[in-house]
């Protein structure tokens, strides 16, 4: 099951397109528990995610995609509304040595368990909030930038020590607020260097972006770039990524997951437009708890038939 993702990471296009869904809320449902319970228990977290991966025939599993994980560890006040965590207020940054706490600590432990138990079948991806989005969520000042950088480095190290196949940074609209310049590049450069020490490639998952952002996003020098929905909440024409696909190792594109035909048509269009490029398919953000499993399975079956 992981062979397609291995081929993607090795930048050998043509070996089939991997399917890499972000689906932790859905995994909680598959595991028969609330999302809050699952993310508080490393054993449940890793086993539910593994089961969900088998159900949806995923090639890789993403753990830690939830933006609020890092924000909460960095002192933000997180409240639960309908089993969804929401950041209501930024708090005081913890000491670097105490950065791995609460649900993030469980995530690090769950990642370790996931890797130990399912690595033969799935690639394991460690996800964390990107530094730009995290800073925006925490409403940090320029004076706190150094402190926050140390915390993100600590978290990236903790995740990398578990030896995932890929370290994925999730970035939201905050990354589009300014042109990608030196501050953004520097923020990512540090994290990329940390991952490189552990021989782990890096990727960024961008959502809420504008087409203009794409022109300069490769300045972040990630190995791989994944794209969710645009700032308008749409999935753009794959032609938008054509230039970028020439200059980066691999690209991931989200499929519209509400409708089987629409998803498969879009997948086919992506393959045609980006023929010969190293391409995988992902989901637009997390697959929600109430995702229609029949539809999801039909999409993944369809993808398997022609990817």
């Amino acid at each position: 099951m992981r062979s397609a993702m291995d081929a993607f990471l090795a930048n050998t296009p043509g070996a089939g397109n991997a399917f890499v869904p972000a689906m932790e809320p859905l995994a909680a449902r598959v595991g028969g528990m609330s999302y809050r319970s699952m993310t508080g228990d490393p054993a449940h977290w890793s086993s539910s995610l593994g089961k969900a991966g088998q159900l949806l025939r995923a090639d890789a599993l993403i753990l830690g995609f939830d933006d609020t994980l890092l924000a909460e560890a960095c002192g933000a006040d997180v409240q639960w509304r309908d089993d969804q965590p929401v950041v209501v207020e930024a708090g005081v940054l913890p000491a670097v040595t105490e950065a791995i706490n609460g649900r993030l600590e469980a995530a690090v432990e769950a990642l370790g368990r996931l890797i130990q138990t399912v690595r033969d079948d799935f690639c394991c991806i460690a996800a964390m909030s990107g530094p730009i989005t995290l800073a925006a969520l925490l409403d940090t000042t320029d004076g706190q930038a150094g402190e926050l950088k140390q915390i993100t480095v600590e978290i990236a190290q903790a995740l990398c020590q578990k030896r995932p196949d890929l370290l994925l940074f999730r970035e939201g609209p905050a990354i589009c607020e300014d042109d990608i310049g030196m501050p953004q590049r520097k923020a990512f450069n540090t994290l990329r260097n940390v991952a490189r020490y552990f021989d782990i490639p890096t990727a960024i998952y961008v959502e809420g972006y504008t087409p203009e952002t794409l022109a300069s996003i490769d300045k972040l020098r990630m190995d791989f770039y994944f794209f969710g929905e645009t700032a308008e909440g749409t999935i753009p024409d794959p032609g938008l990524f054509l230039d970028l696909a020439q200059s980066v190792k691999g690209i991931g594109i989200a499929l519209p997951f509400g409708d089987v035909t629409e998803a498969l048509t879009h997948a086919e269009l992506c393959k045609k437009t980006l023929a010969g490029k190293n391409l995988l398919f992902t989901t637009p953000g997390d697959l929600a708890r109430d995702t229609d499993l029949d539809t999801a399975r039909a999409i993944t079956s369809g993808l398997l038939s022609f990817c």
């Binding site: 950088k149 140390q150 480095v153 600590e154 190290q157 520097k186 450069n189 540090t190 260097n193 940390v194 020490y197």
Partner: peptide, 14 residues
Amino acid sequence: GAMPGPACYDQGGQ
């Protein structure tokens, strides 16, 4: 050492 290394390695060294 190698991690975090000198500050100029940009691996979080302080």
